[in-house]
Design a protein around this nucleic acid. Sequence first.
DNA 1: CAAGTCCGTCAGTAGTTGCTAACGTTAGCG
DNA 2: CGCTAACGTTAGCAACTACTGACGGACTTG
Lengths: 117, 117
Amino acid sequence: MIERDATDEALHALAEPRRRAILRLVAHDELAAGEIAAAFEVSRTAISQHVTVLKNAGLLTERRDGTRRLYRARPEGLAELRASLDEMWADALDTARRLVEADRGLRDTTEEVGRAG
Amino acid sequence: MIERDATDEALHALAEPRRRAILRLVAHDELAAGEIAAAFEVSRTAISQHVTVLKNAGLLTERRDGTRRLYRARPEGLAELRASLDEMWADALDTARRLVEADRGLRDTTEEVGRAG
DNA sequence: CAAGTCCGTCAGTAGTTGCTAACGTTAGCG
DNA sequence: CGCTAACGTTAGCAACTACTGACGGACTTG
């Protein structure tokens, strides 16, 4: 059993095409497990396992109604992943911006840009 | 051999913690393959394979300098993934917004909640 | 209670992946 | 040409994963 943080879990869940398809399915409507499974050609068991992964990743919410279990996409989970990716990429995006600006103001160099060896 | 679209490839690449670590490493600086490998405790071969995956996913750029190969994060690839995720989640986010507003304006249903802009 | 419905969980399997070690390739130096 | 440095590539292995089939729990109806 390996440890996984929230970002890793969400990314891992989204890396599977079938799970993304499930997520699309419940993005606009609340669907029961059976209804989701009916939309695919794999077994109900497989879908149930995928749903569990999505639920653990915080990308899905579960609501019970009698013997049925209704699922819907959880926008908060998606927002959290986006924020995590943004933070992760902040450095890269900032560096790219800096490179562009450094290239634009090459003749105006009173200070070093740090491009040394 | 299975087909993979750009989103799937990027998501698959990011699902691996080591690859995200590599991406962080080259987010602010251009590094050689050996320098990247030196930052981890796995073999140089493993890093090379991870870098290939990131490169194929469009998340990394390669520049050759003699026998060395320098890598840097490619912000465009990251932006493309973000756009893809945004599009995928548009439905869910829109639904969530609609639910909130429907709950807020239950007595005041005069106009439709358009998804303008 | 019993029967039926809806659904998650438990083994078991085929396919995928991240890793290491050995080898092949390209560039620079004498 | 030989030699070394820096890398990518291939083959093979252990671990993981997406899948199926069998089973059991929770709920409703009679």
